[in-house]
Amino acid sequence: MKRMVAAIALLMLALTGIAGQDAPKSEYGLVVYKLGEKYATDKQAGETIDSLADYLDKNIAGSDFKRIGVRNKPDDALKLFQDEKNPVAVAIVSPGFYFKNKTDLKFTVLAEAQRGGKDGEQFTLVGRKEMKEYPAGKKVATTMTADLDWLNKAVLRAPDGAKPIDWVQYDNLADAGYEIIDEEDGAPDFVLVDRATLDVFGKDPDLKSLKSGLQSDLLPQDLVVEVDARLGDKRADLKKVLGALDQNEAGKKLGENLQSPKFPAADDARLEKVAKWYDTK
């Protein structure tokens, strides 16, 4: 009998030990690449992306998301995806990067950002004169010269035979607009602004004097992509959690910091439309 009690006690101890251990978690590398955002770096944005990873860990059982890096230049981002020692499972990337690398890096789109709660992104040309035509050969200020394919293949496509736009990098588009207003030497002819910046221009006492002209099609915003099917059975959970980010307080705060209240499913028709432009030689 004594031997039996001891054996049961031993068994109990062993079972308790097993129950006390955490269930094994799978690790998923997370990368963020945001074109034209000077401060999209590990130093400036790392903490916020870590808080996204923590949020995903809490809401997707058995997952352990880890930030691999935050970048703002396509070549720098590409290096992260090519590092086999630190495999990337999921990333938030600017759309130009997706279209350029979707085949080589085996991307699958899971969701799309909604900056400021708006669906899609539209760019507008603003300048001293209203320019409704493609500004052939003109100097246009933008934050996105690191990805000229995105600018030329998607944002403002040149008509056949037209002289291409001379894209000029500005980190601060307001200052580009002021250069036009102040008629500074070397000022750009136009500024290319997204919808949120266009709103700011409309409220600024000086910048509102500039005229809006040609607009891009409605384009995809930043995309959440899975790399090489590495999320496995966590894919559906991730889509669900990101799509419902605005449904709880912690998610709402995170959405504010990421400048997108939620990440719903991407608009497939929009993606296909732009993909065709990229495929056209």
Binding site: D171, N172, L173, A174, D175, Y178, T197
Partner: peptide, 13 residues
């Protein structure tokens, strides 16, 4: 500060 739309930064202003 960063420029718009994030913040109010402007070297000129």
């Amino acid at each position: 500060a960063p420029g718009p739309p994030v913040s109010i930064g402007s070297l000129r202003n």
